[in-house]
Design a protein around this nucleic acid. Sequence first.
RNA 1: GUGGCCGUAGCUCAGUCCGGUUAGAGCGCCGCGUUGUGGUCGCGGAGGUCGCGGGUUCGAUCCCCGUCGGUCACCCCA
Length: 423
Amino acid sequence: MPSTPDPVKGAPDWLPPDSAAFDAVEGAFLETARLGGYERVRTPVFEHTEVFARAVGESTDVVQKEMYTFADKGGRSLTLRPEATAGIVRAALSAGVPRSGSLPVKYAYAGDCFRYERPQAGRQRSFSQVDIEALGSDDPVLDAEVVLLGWEALRRAGLPAQALTLRLNTLGDPEDRPAYHQVLNAYLDTVDDLPPDVQARQRTNPLRAFDSKAPRMSEVMADAPLLADHVSESAKAHHARVVELLEAEGLPLTHDPRLVRGLDYYTRTTFEYQAAGLGAQNAVGGGGRYDGLAQVLGWGERFPGIGWALGVDRTVLALTGSGTLPPPRPRVAVFVVVAAPELAGEALSLVSALRGAGVATDLGFDGRSVKAQFKVADRAGAARVVILGPDEVARGVLTVKDLATGEQREIARTDATRELVGP
RNA sequence: GUGGCCGUAGCUCAGUCCGGUUAGAGCGCCGCGUUGUGGUCGCGGAGGUCGCGGGUUCGAUCCCCGUCGGUCACCCCA
């Protein structure tokens, strides 16, 4: 017995009517980016593995256990992107953008990313996000703009403000890290029952101790020295300016000194948007500044940047949970009922002419009864049905029925496009 | 990678605890009630290897073991 293949674990399909919600959310995000002057970029879904290993960081979970890495037939190690920023920055560097254009450049991106994780509510192995990246400026005004745009994008997608939380933190500069790591490790060494995973991270990236959700660790970390208290004066001033600007805009900021993102490239400003009604995975978006990323990727000079990623799937989920999904639009405006099978060719010509005039139009197939075709028209959400039968053809007319009112009239065949355009 | 819960019609589920002749419901789908007319209503119909494999039994959707899949959570992130 032949059997159809199952979908790949964690790789969701989007079919109607759900796909309409997906498009609406992605569209709202991209439109917000466009209004902010961000231009669309596309980069490949795979990169050389080292792009992510270096950018995201060897010590991260993403690189250590979540990447789809494979060798191509030329023996290159390639990886399906687990996130978009690294590839976009790499593309900008490949094109010599730091030396060629007026800065900052503003990029927007939409597409799928891939991480090998156990799926759960709001988390899939193949997921879709929209990113914006502003490259080539370390102006705190830019930080504020980016954070603000993310908020507006989520609002435009339909999430009510009261369902959203915005968490903000600063991670300082890379140069601030070694001294702080010493302070933090000294503190952690005073704790005698550290969980093994935290002990392991102490060497590679002690900041990740803040990530641990072990009950014991929440007590421990409550008293831990905070990075925000050990950053340079310029980073502090930068953060203060960002906060000042965002508060002036009335954004409901939550200061979270323990917000440590799981990607190593973040510096200074980091933030996360959380939505209600999502289950355990409640972040619908996040981002931050990554002033050291270009250099990690081998660029010889400083090339700062900042951006966010918003989860499309997760936002659809949040909208579903809060019952604020917009109703899907009708599939077509006009439906042509073919009252006799031999008129199918004539019907196709009519449909084609209507489409040419910008009217979304479908027609009946399979020689089904007029009654059955009307049902299809109704389900398609058509406002009007055009009946094409032997009688109409003989007299050079069309019968047009308004499905909402039930009114029916005849029009001349030659007037079809003019009569059927519009409401 | 670890753990809880769950796999019965296209979908949502009942039945399984106390194994027993043709496995049910609602929705959806198809047709009929109009000889060319939808949404309501009525009637009829199609559709199921009860996830898969093995075991116990006279007999398994039901009990046992294994396996695969789904789901939620941990870890972590969008």
